[in-house]
């Protein structure tokens, strides 16, 4: 019998601390599968964020560094520039980390077309701190700090990171994917692989935004959370490639 599917080597045996049904685990696995397929485990350095995925350094077999809140792209810049030929550097960040406190680092790393890969998990809520409103929370979304729903008069509108960065000259590749079902997981893996390949080819800043769930803080079962994601998140955060400079230049 041939093994069709098993845990990738780049993922450790440590049981993940995530809540049942949290899609962080799926994205961790996709990143690990890509590291395995590209054969870069020995030279990959991951930057863990602050947030639910703060313990990401326990789950990946490659070297990991823990950054201060939101500063992962800055740390990644330093690591990558110290030895650009021999390192593959990726950050793994949530929406509270990347789109709130770390927005400046994200935008400037993109503007500089820094040759790093960013995996951005957007679940429209602060997970680790107990479900507060995030910059990406949807209008009308009920959270701990918006019990009557996000009121755009007081709290403004959610930030669409891919759309925003796509206006910059800098970034090489921006794509938004989701992991709501098997088909979307296959597409997400393809996007993550491309983001890593771009870095190996020296093309520059690649960001993959993964629209994810937070069953615990949304107050839903994992199944209902995936349904809610497809019905509410995806209309606001449309999937697709927002920037792919090399592909655009090839077609010219």
């Amino acid at each position: 019998m041939a093994v069709v599917f098993d845990k990738p080597h780049a993922l450790t045996d440590v049981p993940m601390h995530y809540c049942p049904g949290c899609t962080h685990g799926i994205v961790h696995r996709l990143v690990a599968e890509v590291i395995d397929e590209l054969g870069i485990e020995g030279k990959t350095i991951g930057i863990a964020p602050v947030g639910c995925s703060v313990f990401a350094y326990n789950y990946f077999n490659c070297d990991m560094i823990e950054a201060a809140h939101g500063r992962a792209p800055a740390v990644a810049t330093g690591v990558k520039r110290s030895d650009p030929e021999n390192h593959v550097v990726f950050t793994y960040q949530g929406d509270g980390d990347l789109a709130s406190i770390g927005m400046a680092e994200t935008v400037h790393a993109a503007a500089r077309n820094e040759n790093i890969t960013i995996i951005f998990i957007n679940n429209a809520i602060y997970g680790m701190t107990g479900g507060q409103m995030a910059p990406t929370s949807l209008p009308g979304q009920v959270t701990q700090t918006s019990p009557y729903g996000r009121d755009t008069k007081h709290c403004g509108f959610p930030i669409k990171v891919c759309e925003m960065l796509s206006e910059l000259e800098g970034p090489e590749y921006l794509e938004r994917v989701t992991v709501s079902n098997v088909k979307n997981i296959v597409k997400a893996k393809k996007a993550i692989k491309k983001a890593f390949q771009n870095q190996i080819d020296g093309k520059g800043f690649s960001l993959v935004e993964v629209v994810s769930t937070c069953p615990t803080n949304w107050g839903m079962t994992p199944q209902n959370a995936l349904k809610w994601l497809e019905e509410n998140m995806l209309p606001y955060y449309p999937l697709g490639v927002y920037k792919d400079r090399s592909a655009k230049e090839e077609t010219k």
Binding site: V3, F5, K7, G25, V182
Partner: peptide, 19 residues
Amino acid sequence: VGCAACAMMCPDCIIKVER
């Protein structure tokens, strides 16, 4: 049939599929 859809969806990577 060993399509591995369950294993791909599993967030904790607990399913090994052989065919």
